[in-house]
Amino acid sequence: MPIDKLKKILADFDSSDATEFEYEDADFRVSIKKNGPKTDQEKTDYSDKHILSPLVGTYYDVSPTIQINERVKEGQSLCIIESMKIMNKICAPADLIIRKTYFENGESVEFGSKLFEVDYI
């Protein structure tokens, strides 16, 4: 298959809603997969003013602890979720102000739990 044709397929696949694509001819086979329908997880939904936990684990404060009404820059650490002894940093998806915190140090967190209520700046 010419590389241009493959590029075109990849681009079309990427912009489509399809999650899987397979093509086969006499001497060529391609199989592409997207990581399932989880675009809502990965893209920040600015209308929902909550930061949600991306995994199940134990909540830990960062140091210094995030305060209510604190201004936070995009990429700044908000807390840590420990899961199977791995420390996962949860970072601000954009510049924002913390309005409410939901967990304290050492508490259990589920997938999708609200961690912070925020206002995006």
Binding site: G36, K38, V56
Partner: peptide, 11 residues
């Protein structure tokens, strides 16, 4: 306890 997203590989 919620362990992950709906697709089986995530949960």
């Amino acid at each position: 306890i919620c362990i992950g997203d709906s697709s089986p590989s995530d949960s």
